[in-house]
Design a protein around this nucleic acid. Structure first.
Lengths: 345, 345
DNA sequence: CTGAAAGCGCTTACAG
DNA sequence: CTGAAAGCGCTTACAG
């Protein structure tokens, strides 16, 4: 037989269409007994709501939207993104909400997508990633009045809802690990300064470096690609006073940096220690294996999705800090050999 | 003002609702002049179809579905998947079709998702990845009567529509490259035998190895993970008569294998050559860099999406072979040194 | 070639 | 607590 509708259920249960709707949506207006019977009949008949009808009748589309405004290169190279999606999905599937996903090249196209989805009534809310400083998406998003959760954004008055991770504690762990090994000179290879979370990590890096009595905290800005990670590493190692340790803002650059040390015949960790922000398979399969700051990215995505769904259910927007990462010490970090670093390379 | 509907456009253009619908959907029933005026008015008013209304009225949902039934680990480690999505999206956005995406753990959950989407009328068609031998998704998919395109499937009578790449030519290139360098003993580290494309590559590997006069073609089966790639490599190198070259079924395992050679102090490419199937940033940043069979994965995804959209437009299902990959010779392959391989390690 | 009308499957006031 | 009815924005026969 054809897919059952609420009319079929109403007939089978001997009640009105409206009563079925109330019963199935957990709204008041029907007795507990009736509700139970209706739910049982619906389950027996294998009823699922036609999302188009539900959406048209003025409630939820039953979907949320996610746009990545990055090149296929970056997206495919960094395990972060797929993990984030997996985390988001784990929460969505619990509540039977679909994910509408789009990959575009820049913010302009991203905003156009949001406008289109809003006009089409395609999604009920948005998960917005890669928050920028003076983010040009905030205005259009406000205008569209689309419930949105910013993913990876530090607390600020501009944004109503968002999740971020406790980068200060993470950074502190990494630096204490290095200091414990005797490192005094640490350089940070950072992502783009336009990203809010990069600025937060930069500040935290400077502050904690100072607190721990490290030498001047140096930061190199990159675009997160392997190419710039390698180039930055080369420049750092060729500098007059190279550091004894480098902290990279992602796993891709850290592994690329490791490749550079092999070309330059610099021993890791004997002469130089390397740390990656975000752990991944890459960190486990390179040689030596890469010490990494492993964050629970799936939980991060799940938390963001959960917050958005709560908002769609009428709960107030919130800002949620997720736990700091955990330092996973591996082969790429070791005790500093004071002598080696007095000799310029 | 609120979002315009076709009633607003009809009023502004001085025609009926029905005429607007015909004009905007490129259907006969209105004069060219009227059509042009209606389209102009719609554009001026910034009209976009409410997808829920359109879907409810019995035509397309304006979305297609994609499910990955893999662990977050595999998905995030292999750049392939995100590239495939990027390619799919490039085609979808040209035609303003949305992608509904879900990550699940197994085929059972995948099929349940298809059933739910069908019941909800969430999507118009499906892109189905990772075709298996005796694929248990074919029955349910037939039953749901959902237009589907299999991605990465060799031609077969079971499946009506699909795209795959010319693996025979690709394999031939790889083997000829190795033979040209003097290799005689090549082992293939393959993915799971359950995958149809793996079986095709296995057969091709055996056939071409024989044609080129190579030693007995040996194949090791794995699950595509770095762990099994490393383990297989170790087993192969410890065997009584180790090969002078290994071909891996993905980039993740190839790079993991490279890590093993470094632990075992086996020189690549001096003593052993390595080749990855599918190129990626990982292959470019490891040391030595990895020779790879680079396929245009984005084009692969775009072709699959395009085929599905054509089918939704009423065109007949097809089977499309996409171009073979291109061998990118890098540092991990070199001439075989006959002497080294007479000495067992 | 054009217009008036029914209907897709739901939700939601409104009257009992 | 329940039922009858309108309406969401489209598409599509059907009559002119």
């Amino acid at each position: 037989m054809a897919r059952p509708t609420i009319v079929d259920i109403a007939r089978a249960a001997g009640v009105s269409k409206g009563a079925v709707s109330f019963a199935l949506n957990g709204r008041p207006g029907v007795s507990d007994k009736t509700r139970a019977r209706v739910q049982q009949v619906a389950a027996e008949m294998g009823w699922l709501p036609n999302v188009a009808a539900r959406s048209l009748a003025g409630t939820r589309a039953g979907a949320i939207g996610l746009v990545f405004a990055r090149s296929a290169d970056t997206l495919s190279a960094e395990p972060f993104f797929m993990r984030l999606i997996a985390g988001i999905e784990s929460e969505l599937s619990l509540r039977s909400v679909a994910l509408v996903f789009q990959v575009v090249t820049d913010h302009t196209a991203e905003i156009a997508t949001y406008r289109r989805w809003a006009a089409e009534r395609r999604v009920d809310g948005l998960l917005v990633v890669d928050p920028f400083v003076d983010d040009d998406r905030i205005g259009p998003l406000d205008e569209l009045a689309m419930p949105s959760v910013f993913v990876g954004v530090p607390p600020s008055d501009d944004l109503v809802a968002g999740v971020w991770s406790d980068d200060a504690t993470s950074m502190s762990q990494v630096l204490k690990h290095l200091v414990g090994l005797g490192h005094k000179r640490v350089v940070r290879v950072a992502g783009s300064n336009n990203h809010q979370h990069v600025q937060v990590r930069n500040e935290t890096f400077r502050r904690i470096s100072a607190e721990l009595g490290l030498d001047e905290a140096m930061i190199v800005e990159t675009d997160y690609t392997a190419e710039q990670g390698a180039q930055a590493t080369r420049a750092i190692l060729m500098s007059p006073r190279p550091p004894s340790a480098i902290i990279y803002d992602n796993d891709v650059m850290a592994v690329a940096g490791l490749g550079v040390t092999q070309q330059l015949r610099i021993d890791v960790p004997g002469e130089l220690s390397l740390v990656a922000w975000d752990d991944s398979q890459m960190c486990r399969i390179c040689h030596p294996t890469m010490t990494a700051l492993g964050r629970d990215i799936e939980n991060f995505g799940a938390t963001a999705a959960s917050l958005l769904l709560d908002m769609l259910d009428g709960q107030p927007p919130r800002k949620i800090e997720t736990p700091a990462g955990v330092l996973i010490a591996r082969g790429s970090t070791g005790p500093v050999d004071a002598q080696m670093h007095t000799t310029p390379r």
